[in-house]
Design a protein around this nucleic acid. Structure first.
Length: 293
DNA sequence: CCGCGGGCCTGAGAGC
DNA sequence: TGCTCTCAGGCCCGCG
């Protein structure tokens, strides 16, 4: 599922139930997801209080009273659901109505406030790790990440810097978490369309020495922020399996301008183009060949 | 160092 | 109905 807006939507759903709550019991229902679970995973969580729930790129970070950080990634198909005690009895719209767990509910958090949080991940590309808080920034998965696109410091100059010398396509560059952290296939396509930049353009060329310096990089940075903020406001995008933690669908898929819209008219004002699908490095790219240059 | 392709998994949907 | 094939929102790793 999840790119930055979906992960942020999940974080906002989990934060009110997890922050300040203690893990009373943790069910780990299989030995591994993408990676094996940490040694003594449930015992290291049980008794700990969640002091804060943050996000970095597509990672959720739960700060624990033990001094460890629970690092969680949703992979392609991971989702969290919050179930309150009262939901277990009555009929519900969730697959765990009446307390029933589905085959892909791999982790269950029982919290001191009575809430139950489940992690479901059919494809198991997600994972959970425990890292000492003081070592978090040096952890390979964190250290390699590029700038946070919704951070205050992110702008065209920073983006141009990250793309400097990159001979690969803009599509590949923006998909690279070292260049900018948190975008995936959908939001890369959407941001490039909003910035009127071709996914095939050589990445380093967003910084130009002629004309207005950084005009393209500025437009792209602004487009990235705009599409991410719009998507977060809509509760993320629900394609096949993304849901919010309350089971409701996100809405942003109705606002896609190019993603999965091959053959439709370009929505850019005064553009007569038709959205095309191409394949870049085994992944689908959607763009308008007329207004994206 | 960089860029590309393969692999990890399951499920949904299309086509026969 | 049921089989087979393709494709999917992410990321790591090994190759050239």
């Amino acid at each position: 599922m999840p790119e930055l807006p979906e992960v942020e939507t999940v974080r906002r759903g989990l934060q009110p139930v997890m922050e300040g709550a203690r893990f009373v019991r943790v069910e780990q229902r299989r030995p591994d997801l993408r990676f094996p679970f940490p040694q003594n995973f449930n015992k290291r969580l049980e008794g700990q209080t969640v002091e804060g729930l943050g996000r970095r790129a597509k990672y959720l970070l739960a700060d624990l009273s033990s001094g460890e950080v629970l690092l969680m990634h949703l992979g392609m198909s991971g989702s969290f659901r919050v179930l309150h005690g009262s939901d277990e009895r009555g009929p519900g719209k969730f697959h765990h109505a009446r307390g029933k767990l589905s085959a892909h509910d791999h982790v269950v958090f029982h919290l001191s406030n009575g809430a139950i949080v489940t992690f479901n991940d059919p494809r198991r590309f997600g994972f959970m790790k425990l890292v000492r808080r003081e070592e978090l920034n040096q952890h390979p998965m964190m250290a390699a990440l590029g700038p946070e696109p919704l951070g205050n410091a992110f702008d065209g100059a920073m983006l141009a810097q990250a793309c400097a010398g990159k001979k690969t396509s803009l599509k590949a560059a923006l998909s690279d978490q070292k260049v900018v952290a948190g975008l995936g296939n959908i939001y890369v396509c959407e941001a490039l369309h909003r910035a009127h930049l071709s996914p095939k353009r050589i990445a380093s060329t967003i910084a130009t020495r002629t004309g207005k310096p950084l005009a393209r990089a500025d437009a792209l940075a602004d487009a990235i922020k705009a599409v991410l903020n719009d998507a977060i406001r809509a509760g993320g995008s629900s394609l096949r399996d993304h849901r919010r933690t309350d089971g409701e669908l996100g809405d942003f898929q109705h606002n896609f301008r190019v993603y999965d819209r091959a053959g439709t008219k370009c929505v850019t004002p005064k553009c007569n183009g038709t959205i095309r699908r191409i394949v870049q490095g085994t992944r689908s790219t959607f763009f308008c060949p007329v207004c994206q240059k």
